[in-house]
Design a binder for these strands. Structure first.
Lengths: 206, 206
DNA sequence: CGTATTATTATACGCTTGAACAACTACGCC
DNA sequence: GGCGTAGTTGTTCAAGCGTATAATAATACG
């Protein structure tokens, strides 16, 4: 009896593939569907290999969560251009693909439901959340300053809370029931709503 | 050898207790912590009893989800008073206890992550969501009409989407990081933001 | 080309799970 | 006050879980 043949992959690639397989499992069947055997099947390897790269199932889930958060926030945190362009891009990015889709929500919700249980996940979560909100607060401060408006910390904070909430909520609605909204309806709703909150128009990209 | 003594409870009470125990398990340890054995321990009965009241574990989870949604929406859908009072109450209720707390979020997120997997849960979800948004749209239409403002369906819809998003998002922020906000900060942020969106003050309750 | 290294497979173990079912006991009824 | 009903218990079962480990095959290297 012979064993099946296999490919020896570089460590980075293999780890990436395993995490990707984990995310696929979670997106398709929830956290309960992400068993080591299912992950292995999805990655085209056998279950034992997972423990060669990760000390436990907990660990691969934690690293998978890091990837999820990074994908939800990294693009928005790297916007460039004038203050208007950056604020606008931030809004658009968070409400369009690939950030806003049902898979993102599935992944996000699966992990959120464990954040209150697993302290390690909670730490990863807090880090990502604070980074996101600080980025938004910075964009707002620059935007207000560029208009010569009041950019006092208290006002920035209050505005950031409201806008962050609005973006989160619209992202949620879009992910949960994207088919109920027309193309870009959420984006235009967000833009006009935020303009109303700030009391200023946001110049479109050139 | 004798068995432990037990109490024969009325069906409604027993079912209620079992569902309550299920929610406790989910809130404390996530969906994975809601095993039939754990639920039984929490309810003070033995595992076999659960299958006397529910045909499967899936079924008890579905009924538990119905309870979760009902608690998140029933209070807000029953506000009374003038249009201003009703709109204000709607906002306050959704951002204060018992709707807004970390337990609610844990339960909500646990189930949301399964909504895209289980069609039965998806149906329960859609029903609750539409009810909530219709209630909000009705409140807005009444509010706008009471001021003699444009209450055209398109405007109501657009406003409802934005306000619904804002409420969802702030609810989320409050549940996830309630300790980062001062008492009633979210409520006042929501009220002033929504006033800005509508372009009208909302009269406080008498 | 032969050999050392290690990534990967294959198998096994102990445990928990959802489910099934027979035995038992609380309680309503006459 | 005994009896029948059915709510409840206790036990069992197969399947699937995370983990451990020995055997094996792919690759790097002299």
């Amino acid at each position: 009896m012979s064993r099946r043949s296999f490919h020896r992959a570089p460590e980075a690639e293999r780890r990436h593939d395993l995490i990707e397989a984990t995310l696929d499992c979670i997106a398709e069947a929830g956290l309960q569907g992400a068993t080591v055997r299912q992950i292995a099947i999805k990655a085209g390897v056998t279950a034992g290999l997972i423990r060669h790269y990760f000390t436990s199932k907990e660990q691969i889930l934690q690293e998978a969560y890091r990837v999820v958060i990074a994908r939800l926030t990294e693009k928005a945190e790297r916007v460039t251009g004038t203050p208007d362009e950056r604020l606008r891009s931030f809004i658009v990015i968070n409400l369009t693909e690939p950030v806003a889709n049902s898979r993102s929500l599935s992944l996000w919700a699966s992990f959120i439901s464990r954040v209150s249980v697993d302290p390690e996940l909670a730490a990863i979560h807090r880090e990502g959340y604070l980074g996101f909100r600080n980025a938004l607060e910075g964009l707002l401060a620059d935007f207000l300053a560029s208009r010569g408006l009041d950019a006092a910390p208290a006002r920035c904070r209050s505005l950031a809370i409201a806008i962050n909430g609005l973006l989160d909520g619209l992202w949620l609605e879009g992910c949960l029931a994207g088919e109920l909204f027309e193309e870009s309806e959420l984006v235009s709703t967000a833009l006009s709503s935020i303009e109303a909150l700030i009391g200023q128009p946001i110049a479109p990209a050139a």
